[in-house]
Design a protein around this nucleic acid. Sequence first.
DNA 1: GATATTTTACTGGTATACCGGTAAATAACG
DNA 2: CGTTATTTACCGGTATACCAGTAAAATATC
Lengths: 79, 79
Amino acid sequence: MNKIESIGSIIRFHRKKAGLTQKQLATLAGVGKTAVFDIEKGKKTVRLNTLTTLLSILNIHLIVQSPLMDQYNHDEGNG
Amino acid sequence: MNKIESIGSIIRFHRKKAGLTQKQLATLAGVGKTAVFDIEKGKKTVRLNTLTTLLSILNIHLIVQSPLMDQYNHDEGNG
DNA sequence: GATATTTTACTGGTATACCGGTAAATAACG
DNA sequence: CGTTATTTACCGGTATACCAGTAAAATATC
């Protein structure tokens, strides 16, 4: 039920649960500390790959939902 | 069940269902045609806000999932 | 309260996302 | 087929994400 708009505070929550500082997470993800700080602060203009790298380290997944997804999934040849 | 990795082809599928060309979608979203083309092609280094603008127009939603999300949601004072 | 750790903030430099224009492939259609 | 619409590709220019330092708040630990 959680939306992408609150991804910053979600990342912060998971990072603390993992016992990591911003810098430690940044190093694990191979990005700068500024990127972690900016994303947790709610910056929307971050790059998708920077975000997804952090998410994968924290075991957070983004799921795509829409009324047409059933059609999409039943259709062969996607991806 | 669909992951963010295939967001490009998902967007393309929804755009066609909506009867829009890349340029029409770009104009609606207030972004350049290059951005739509790149995202549909699978570019991962796009900016999050560029992506989410397209998604909202096509009525596609990104949901955040993780084993710790229950804890996060029961905790007050997030956001 | 003093000290150490972490977070926040600012900076100059570099890489690149994004822009609109243009043009060549590719697809749709008579 | 020929014509039109769409997609793909490339371009120079501009804006900005990101980087590593540095330093000052804020927080935690003793």
